[in-house]
Design a protein around this nucleic acid. Structure first.
Lengths: 195, 195
DNA sequence: CCAACATACGGAACGGCGTTCCGGATGCCA
DNA sequence: TGGCATCCGGAACGCCGTTCCGTATGTTGG
């Protein structure tokens, strides 16, 4: 808002080489640490893996949410972009919705602790919350609207509530073989159908 | 299993008066603290409320789960006992199941942080996990069996998975007016119905 | 090639929290 | 009332997130 860069070259003069190197190292280290210890892995562990000090983490990623978003951004984008594609390719909007939610569930259940972090009311996770919502709620809304228009599901379900519900059901996936989030999500989506 | 007390008087000689007083004070303080700050309230806060040292908490309730169970035992028992009663009084087993689950949801959504604690894989919560499961899974099983026998729901849902799913859906209740666990649970239960 | 400056780094330090431990106090019973 | 088993308080320890600043390093103009 302060100044519009009317030129074309980047207004930010380019970061120092070591800074870029460290940011990359941190992303790699965090991704690896998330896999082995979940997204709640202690900050110091990530720092050790990346070979940097803890201060460097906070300089690049002020909150844990920023780091998580940076690590998973590509996958979240892919999920968001898959929505319209599925809607175009599927036989019915409800089928597209079901497939898209499956995609979302597949993403969540393979990220230890992420589903729980998504629901945390800790202020440090607000960015995470916001990013997921901004990116996925509109897509889900579009799918829901199409299914409602096709008279396949009841019209009184909003995308926000559905996504939070699905996210919640994914908490603790893999902790007990008797708990299968996919099945419950399927049941939930089945419950959406008009009778 | 070691020795059966064949007599009638209590084998444990009775605790000291101050110990009983403190235990009562701790239960009251914890109940109040859970209401205002959730079940994750710092141990020291409970100690201050009860007017005791932190050591006294750990002596009476070795883990946080023990304290939570002690505080809510009555309500959990009441919920468990309501199962058979509902089954006897309701028109159909499915109605009884739905009502019973409503009871469970009502309990969970009014206990800030409890649903999340129930799913935590932290070792400190194992007792909590075990108590809920021991007490409620058989009841839920009975209701499910009856509904299956009446051909009202699909037969491939186990009580453990259902209860965990319902518990998960209750996480974060009240944090956002757009998120209504009751509605999602209803949808889930609706999804159980045979078509 | 070399200063001199902006930028970035490392890790010590701080506060909050759960948990343990033990010297001292206190109820209980003979 | 004396003596003992029981119980209490809170200091102390370790883990963790977060902040901060003296130091190191990349960059750039001369």
């Amino acid at each position: 808002m302060a100044d519009i860069d009317s030129g074309s070259e980047q207004p930010v003069p380019r970061k120092r080489a070591d800074a870029r190197r460290n940011e990359r190292a941190l992303l790699d280290a965090a991704a690896a640490a998330f896999v082995t210890s979940g997204v709640d892995v202690p900050v110091r562990d990530i720092a050790v893996r990346a070979g940097v000090g803890v201060g460097t983490i906070y300089r690049h990623f002020p909150t844990r949410a920023d780091l998580i978003v940076a690590v998973y951004r590509h996958q979240i984008e892919a999920c968001a972009e898959a929505g319209p594609a599925l809607l175009a390719d599927s036989d019915t909007p409800h089928a597209a919705l079901a497939q898209w939610i499956d995609l979302f569930v597949d993403f969540l259940v393979t990220k230890h602790g992420l589903a729980a972090a998504l629901q945390s009311d800790d202020a440090a996770f607000q960015t995470l919350h916001a990013y997921f919502l901004d990116r996925l709620v509109p897509v889900c809304d579009q799918l829901l609207d199409a299914a409602v228009a096709a008279d396949e599901i009841r019209p009184d379900m909003d995308a926000y509530g559905l996504l939070r519900g699905v996210g919640n059901l994914c908490i603790g996936a893999g902790s007990d073989p008797r708990y299968d989030p996919r099945r419950l999500v399927d049941l939930l989506v089945a419950g959406l159908r008009v009778r």
